[in-house]
Nucleic acid binder design. Structure first.
Length: 599
RNA sequence: GGUUCGGUAGCUCAGUUGGAUUAGAGCAGCAGCCUUCUAAGCUGCGGGUCAAGGGUUCGAGCCCCUUCCGAAUCACCA
């Protein structure tokens, strides 16, 4: 059994025996002892003063005496400082714990069974009119990491993507391509499909704004001009044709979307993310209309004179929300209702998580209420995993002002920079093929990008500084990967020397304070994984990995593994190195960050 | 204006269910350390009224209230 659990149980017994009071185990706080005091674990006794009716120090002393008497093989000795009871744990317990961590391939993970709750996670959700940018990168990385974290906590996970493949935005691109494209294709232009379509979307916007400007110059007010401009009217007509199933429009739509999907697939592959089930808005929006009509019949919603359908949420403290336009076409909310319906038909969902930016907090607040009204059992408890915006040093990302960071460009830059960095350190690895070097550059470059984004608390807006992201010093992915590679090198060399880990570590081995501290922190991993799932926030895993690796690095400079002469000490240090590498690999793995065996 | 979320070192960020006279990392600056298991590293120095004020208690960066600042949102856009 784990050390903490043993002590908690013993303390609960002690409170009962000494003071005759029952004690909830959740009130028993064990924390790491501060380095300036002797001991490994500290019990905070303040919560027990009510039961003991004695001064803090006396209470602490009594509990300490009880523990050393009852569980002497765990608590070797103790000391008291004010209300804090510092416990010195028997070294053999730490060895056992280390052995336990090393004995499991995935220490800290919970198994997934057929009875595990089914969690569906929606992320990415691109529009098909432009390529992915930095904001999507954050979304994709968070979604993928969160899916891994939920799975590590014993949930069945279905990763899903809802592609916004229909709507006015894609009509704009189509229209622009028809008008100015001269039949250009990804093959003929050599452009990636999503970039090609994105270029036409930009072209549409440019011409559209010129039209609006002209109309305003002729004396029309701006709001009216935006609606009356010929291009936007034409795009709306196209949307109506699309909804009517016009063969020509549908054929073009299909062709252009295929180009975009091919482009997205490349980007997803480079990011290392994927999906179990992809939904398309074109398949779900009609379902949504149906569901809205159903709600209308049941009196949840109402129809206005112009024919539009609304939900009145003023009782919930919100506004009225449009569900169907007066021309009968559906809006964003309608689509999400339809998608929910299809998903629920496809899977017995227990929990639904939407990974969507915080600009849509209101949308999901409304969606939760609507789904609940419409009878989805997970609607009320749906989780909107809301992440902050990515800002650039010179302001926000704005596609109109051309200050977006394109995902594909970014990925390429990161990998090239990583390759450059390792080329500068070329002395290190002599026997390396160009292919291996390229693969290491890919792992390190992507690791730098992923770690830079995932280490930040997902809820907060973050600043993406391109220069800093390729700096591999400090709290970065490459620093962690580098330490991992060094540990693997030690383990390889140990093997060459014929040193291997025995099935049973020597319980009599001596441990330094640093070694005990490292074992304690390795043990924390299980808790961190649980916390990440509880908060729906993977960033704590990133920061944990950094702390662990930093501690190992300090350790590394003070102790040697291969040159240690005491056989027992050497075995323990080897086991520690093994454990650190394993935990780091699993931790980064949850974040979707790969580790290189050498670099 | 309503709602939601933020405010911690010059900059970017940690800070676990409230815990220990001294709130931590990294970057940037300064000073050391490579005949050593991989120096993409390690050690030291300087840098803070945790936005402000009040409250809760043995104890608050963390919980409650007020104020200030910032962001998002409140569309027949997605």
């Amino acid at each position: 059994m784990e050390i903490t659990q043993q002590i908690v149980r013993a303390v609960a017994c002690g409170i009962k025996t000494l003071y005759g009071a029952d004690c909830e185990t959740s009130k028993i706080q064990l924390q790491e002892t501060r380095p300036e005091f002797e001991g490994n674990m500290t019990l905070v006794v303040f919560p027990f003063l009510r039961a003991s009716r004695k001064p803090a120090e006396e209470t602490a002393r009594e509990i300490g005496e009880y523990l050393t008497a009852e569980v002497p093989d765990v608590v070797a000795r103790f000391n008291v400082v004010k209300g804090f009871l510092n416990l010195v744990i028997a070294p053999a317990q730490w060895i056992k714990l280390l052995q336990e961590i090393n004995g499991q391939e995935r220490f800290g993970f919970r198994p997934v069974t057929d009875e595990s709750p089914l969690v569906m996670i929606e992320y990415s959700s691109p529009n098909t009119n432009k390529p992915l940018h930095l904001g999507h990168v954050r979304n994709n990385l968070l979604g993928w990491a969160l899916a891994n974290v939920m799975e590590a906590n014993g949930n069945r996970v279905v990763k899903t993507n809802i592609v916004n493949d229909r709507g006015i935005h894609i009509c704009k691109s189509m229209l622009a391509w028809l008008r100015w494209g001269n039949g250009e294709t990804p093959e003929s232009s050599g452009k990636k499909g999503d970039h090609l379509i994105g270029d036409y979307y930009v072209a549409f916007d440019k011409h559209y704004r010129e039209e609006v400007k002209e109309l305003v110059a002729k004396g029309m007010d701006e709001e009216q001009a935006k609606q009356e401009a010929p291009l936007i009217k034409e795009a709306h007509e196209m949307l109506v044709k699309w909804e009517q199933g016009d063969p020509e429009v549908r054929a073009l739509w299909k062709k252009m979307n295929e180009w975009v999907y091919a482009g997205f697939d490349e980007t997803y592959k480079a990011l290392g993310v994927g999906f179990d089930k992809i939904y398309y808005e074109s398949d779900t929006y009609l379902e949504g209309k149906e569901k809205v009509e159903e709600g209308l019949a049941k009196g949840f919603f109402y129809r206005r004179e112009d024919g539009s359908v609304w939900a009145d949420l003023t009782k919930e403290g919100l506004d009225e929300k449009l569900l169907l336009r007066s021309d009968g076409t559906s809006v964003y909310m309608t689509q999400d209702i339809g998608t929910a319906k299809l998903r629920f038909q496809d899977y017995p969902i227990d929990k639904m998580i939407y990974v969507v930016g915080n600009e849509q907090n209101y949308h999901f607040q409304v969606l939760s209420i609507l789904l609940d009204k419409l009878g989805f059992k997970w609607g009320k408890d749906l989780v909107h995993f809301s992440y902050g915006m990515v800002e650039l040093p010179n302001g926000k990302m704005k596609s109109r002002e051309g200050t977006v960071v394109d995902a594909d460009d970014l990925i390429q830059t990161m990998i090239q920079d990583a390759a450059q960095m390792s080329a500068d350190k070329v002395l290190r690895l002599e026997d390396i093929t160009p292919e291996e070097a390229q693969e290491i550059a890919r792992i390190v470059g992507m690791g730098a990008l992923k770690y830079f984004i995932l280490k930040v608390d997902a809820r907060k807006n973050m600043l993406f500084n391109p220069e800093e992201s390729i700096d591999f010093n400090g709290n970065t992915g490459p620093f962690i990967q580098y330490t991992y590679a060094r540990i693997r090198s030690i383990l390889r060399k140990a093997k060459e020397k014929g040193i291997s880990l025995p099935d049973e570590l020597p319980l009599t081995a001596e441990l330094s304070d640093k070694e005990i501290s490292l074992i304690q922190h390795l043990n924390d991993f299980a808790q961190v994984v649980r916390q990440a799932a509880g908060d729906y926030n993977p960033s704590c895993i990133a920061n944990y990995c950094y702390e662990l690796v930093k501690e190992y690095n300090q350790f590394y400079h003070d102790f040697s593994v291969l040159r240690e002469e005491d056989a027992q000490k050497q075995i323990v240090r080897l086991a520690l190195s093994e454990a650190v590498s394993k935990v780091v690999r699993n931790g980064l793995g949850l974040l979707g960050i790969e580790v290189p065996e050498r670099m």
